[in-house]
């Protein structure tokens, strides 16, 4: 349980937190002190302590997004000390533990930054651009009816594995937050390659990639420069290979689809 530092004592920390009242207003970094933080707390529990303190003092608590607190919903998005989800690779903020920090540290906490992810309040950003990209084609249309037999459509194990790896994307947006270009290509590529690999995805294969890329551009995300920050910061390890697959799918669709628009 105790991680790197079994005898770690409670810590006192300085938090430098982005405060912003609303989407329209300007924000700034504000310093807060928190005391007696247990190294076994998660980062979000540490923020809960901060908010308790603020409430006691009659101040406005810090708004931040969270839901599952077990690394699957993708909402706990904080840019911590210059890294998406903090310094620990392969974790969401809710899975980041305070034992990764030391007594006396100053921790800078900022929201995701991207033109397509406006800040709603404090650390909470609007990621509905991702939802609109998925709505543009990140699904398989099926007729409702009886449940099909599980083995009706054979899928080779290695294809199923690769599709599953792509499907593990939790839509957190760390890829966009970390990218110098605020590009959403890793996110889009994960969905496009997941469905392109599977037989169920074939019917809508070309329109899917065309529409999702068009929506991605419309939302104002940047283009991919193959820098790799996204994959390095992705909490579930979506690989850059998916972006090559996306480009391939896009080229093929543009060259051969029947859409003239």
């Amino acid at each position: 349980m105790a991680g790197n530092n079994p005898n770690a004592k409670p810590m006192n920390l300085t938090l430098r937190v982005w405060r912003q009242r609303s989407r329209q207003s300007d924000g700034q970094l504000v310093d807060y002190q928190v005391k007696d933080i247990s190294p076994e707390m998660s980062f979000l529990e540490m923020l809960d302590v901060l908010n308790e303190n603020l409430l006691h003092k009659g101040e406005e608590p810090v708004a931040f997004d969270h839901d599952c607190r077990e690394g699957i919903c993708g909402s706990c998005n904080l840019f911590i000390n210059g890294r998406a989800h903090g310094p620990e690779p392969g974790t969401t903020t809710c899975q980041l533990h305070m034992r990764k920090f030391s007594d006396g540290d100053t921790i800078v906490i900022e929201p995701w930054r991207a033109a397509a992810f406006p800040v709603n309040k404090d650390l909470s950003v609007d990621r509905s651009a991702f939802d609109r990209i998925i709505q543009a084609g990140g699904y398989v249309s099926v007729n409702t009816g009886g449940v099909p037999d599980a083995n009706e459509i054979p899928i080779p194990k290695n294809i199923a594995d690769r599709a599953f790896d792509a499907a593990t994307c939790i839509g957190c947006g760390a890829c966009v937050a970390a990218c110098k270009n605020a590009s959403a290509m890793l996110f889009v590529s994960a969905k496009v390659s997941q469905l392109a690999l599977l037989p169920q995805g074939q019917v809508e294969r070309k329109t899917r990639v065309e529409n999702m890329v068009a929506q991605m551009d419309k939302e104002g995300f940047g283009a991919c420069s193959n820098i790799g920050s996204c994959a390095a910061e992705c909490p579930v390890g979506i690989s850059l290979e998916n972006i090559a697959i996306l480009n391939r799918e896009f080229l093929n669709a543009k060259a051969t689809s029947n859409n003239l628009a």
Binding site: R16, W18, G27, L29, F79, N81, G82, V108, E110, R113, A114, A115, A116, F117, V119, K180, N181, A182, S183, G220, F221, G222
Partner: peptide, 10 residues
Amino acid sequence: TARGAQGYAV
């Protein structure tokens, strides 16, 4: 433009 007007402090 996509990166947005407000950059990261760190």
